[in-house]
Design a protein around this nucleic acid. Sequence first.
DNA 1: CATGAATGAGGTTTCATTCAT
DNA 2: TATGAATGAAACCTCATTCAT
Lengths: 212, 212, 212, 212
Amino acid sequence: MSTVPAFKRLPRAVREQQMLDAAVKVFSRRGFHAASMDEIAEDAGISKPMVYAYLGTKEELFVACLHREGTRMMQAIAGAAAPDLPADERLWRGLRAFFGFVGAYRDGWAVLYRQARGEQPFAGELAAMRARLVEVVAGMLDHALRAEGREITAVDLEVVAYALVGATESLADWLADHPDADPEKTATRMMNVAWLGAAQLLHGATWRPPVD
Amino acid sequence: MSTVPAFKRLPRAVREQQMLDAAVKVFSRRGFHAASMDEIAEDAGISKPMVYAYLGTKEELFVACLHREGTRMMQAIAGAAAPDLPADERLWRGLRAFFGFVGAYRDGWAVLYRQARGEQPFAGELAAMRARLVEVVAGMLDHALRAEGREITAVDLEVVAYALVGATESLADWLADHPDADPEKTATRMMNVAWLGAAQLLHGATWRPPVD
Amino acid sequence: MSTVPAFKRLPRAVREQQMLDAAVKVFSRRGFHAASMDEIAEDAGISKPMVYAYLGTKEELFVACLHREGTRMMQAIAGAAAPDLPADERLWRGLRAFFGFVGAYRDGWAVLYRQARGEQPFAGELAAMRARLVEVVAGMLDHALRAEGREITAVDLEVVAYALVGATESLADWLADHPDADPEKTATRMMNVAWLGAAQLLHGATWRPPVD
Amino acid sequence: MSTVPAFKRLPRAVREQQMLDAAVKVFSRRGFHAASMDEIAEDAGISKPMVYAYLGTKEELFVACLHREGTRMMQAIAGAAAPDLPADERLWRGLRAFFGFVGAYRDGWAVLYRQARGEQPFAGELAAMRARLVEVVAGMLDHALRAEGREITAVDLEVVAYALVGATESLADWLADHPDADPEKTATRMMNVAWLGAAQLLHGATWRPPVD
DNA sequence: CATGAATGAGGTTTCATTCAT
DNA sequence: TATGAATGAAACCTCATTCAT
């Protein structure tokens, strides 16, 4: 009847996914430290030693979660925002895919961003992923700027990209906290904020601090 | 004889500040869970029972840190962005004050945002503070919009404000991770991103998703 | 076709020897408690349930090791020191065989003496084997004494034999820790110590404590 | 009434000795691995965290036992065998002190020799102590030899000393296993074995292997 | 006021051992 | 026969928290 044999003695690959599902859920609810391996094992419907046998230490388990969720997210975005599209089109599709991911995997998002950021051992992992995102956004901006015959310093570029990514993450948090909100609509809103600001930038408008 | 009683038996208020200083430092370095009351007490140069006597439980201690740092930040911002100034001036002064605070109290910032966000018991505290910020920003935007004779829905307003706050926090993180960066310059950059986007909004420009 | 069935499905006896080899190696390296059945099974190139099916519990496995190595040692000694030889000849041949065994099976020696001695459940097994050795040595001494027309108490005999066995074991440890040392030469040295002392004893020389 | 305050809240130094007493006892009965910190704590009449607070890790605790017992033993021997006495007198007094120590602290002896030898992490500690003993004995022999105008190679000297120490340890084990035996008498027996053999050595007697 | 002494509770990790295929 | 999957039990260690001085 079912594709999965039946009840117990599942093959390793299946059990690993079950464990990761449970781990993502528990880490997301409780945070890394407060989560207990007991609860994760129980939630996965399996005994603790299996978790250690398959996924290793608590830290390694968390990293495995990070990787799975991070990869999912990155693939969702990369699959949507083909590099040969015009910049606004790429941005829009990327944002739509991103918010779609967050809407679909709220727990995963929470693990990735809310938990990993606070815990020192994983800050590096996260920073790397975030850096890839920032780089992609910065690349898009740079591409569009050059098309307009304009240019800004590398640091300025990075900072603007950082701000856009931060704004996006912030809306993702908002989305994760509003289960009824529509991911697509949230993407549209972010696109408004981002593109309008970026478009100004493209046309060379700048703001300067007043002289006190 | 002297105004500060030299050695021990400090007045309660002073002791409490010493403890909070130590707590903020340790929480910021280690995170809430990984921080130990032992280390905090030792760092404060005081015995553990004193910490309990003065500031209570570990959770209560963390909340006290949150309050002190949050209040400092809010006061810095509120003191700078007087409500009777024009919107752009308020925004600029607020941002400058904010990044100034982050630059000056990196540990405090880390406690407030990087640690508190991940730990369930404090998410509420933090959300409340953040909500006040969002509200202030939304108020500024609304004020400016009405001055232009325009209006947008409350949710839209909230979301845009959320995005701006998120972008700002993101740059604050960036600033906290780049000890040599200049807070004032970072504020200018954020102002560029924010104001240019907002100005578009004010003038009625909008982006609409393409019809697939 | 071939005498050794090439690959798997080895006859039980062969498998058991493989397992014992692996077990002796791992017990000797790690000690009884620190050794894990996992490592032993892996080292034997076989799955854990097989080990249990063939050799039983971890304790039983250790006892099996003890027996194999102990028997090997005893046979080496007994085979060399034929009971019809004169005492000094028997002693010399026994020592030579003993140190030869230790030199050839350092792991086995380590299991037998260094590990088994410390672990309560096996102290008995070991004591029994040692008792047999002591008995043999005591027998030799007694025989020689009677040939000289002399006699000492049973306890004195046991204690002297104990001392000789202890000295021998000590040199065995020394040999096990000096892989380049020559077993034969070590045997000669021990023979010097033992025989010279024993010869004195045979001739009735004794030392008495001074009166304080 | 009593010098120890009363019941609980003992000063650190006292509690540490209680813990070491318990640890020596339990380690000696069960062996390092089989001993549990729970049992040690319970036997010391205290909770586990105190043990960790005062003496550290299980390994560190064992090392502390090793040190205390080793120091006691060495001091007993050194205090008895003054270096300015004649060799036979020194040997006799050293042996008497040694067997006295073993008789008085059977548990300590078991920890020092029976347990430590088998456990890799402590083999070094033990080897060092034993090396000091061997060195002392070798020094005594060398001194006596030179007084007789004779000399042997350094390796031979070491090996003979090793054998004597081994024989002594073996009798110590025997003593530890025979609670009713008299330490002084055991020392006399060992002195007989040792001194008679050594005396032969001093006078130049040697045994040579027969040519097969 | 101030602290050294003390602990209950709980977490991670490992291991010998056994099913079910 | 042979093994991957699975677990109960227990060990070490740490920490927030509180007495008793």
